[in-house]
Amino acid sequence: MIRDKLHIVLVLPNIMESIAIKKLITDCGIIAGFSEFPDIHQLIHYLSNHSPQYIFIHQSKITPENLDNLNMYNGKSESLCFIKVGESQINHTEKLFRHVLDTQKNENEIMKQIVHIFEPVQPATRLIEATGLSQREIDILKQVALGMTNKEISEHLHISMHTVITHRKNITAKLGIKTIAGLTIYAVLNNIINPEDVEM
């Protein structure tokens, strides 16, 4: 269950703004790698051989000329999203920008904007690095979380009770979670089961 990190690019006027935005994104549970550039010229150079998913550009960095250069990336890839960052009354006329991020709002409002921007990202990309569980262990964890007994699991997966018990011991040792209720939460957090599948 190793997933690719998101790749986010920032073109912002100063270090304070860049630190703040990175922190807010991380606080939203987004795990990402960041690249930063001082201007759009360098950004365009970088885009010729990299494909980030999100690009945050401050309004002060945009000129009609460099906007033309950026427009060639518009619609080129579904997974590439441009966000315009700016103070209040930010105008949003360019088609290039899918979202605007108004930095004059209060913290909660800004968080909501960021959550909205990253909504299309699969929850899987937001969470958790490798668990160390084997595919077989994940299969068994899934059954446990769905409320099946050891006997039912052994019948369902055509393995002996003894094997089921050994797997369960290993899962508990690897995850540090002992109870079924705890394993269920782990399974939901990691998209191994859907929250609707269990009575939570």
Binding site: L127, I128, L175, I177, L189
Partner: peptide, 11 residues
């Protein structure tokens, strides 16, 4: 379990 979920697994 509760402690471990918060420390290790909750976003």
């Amino acid at each position: 379990d509760l402690k471990n979920i918060i420390i290790k697994y909750l976003p």
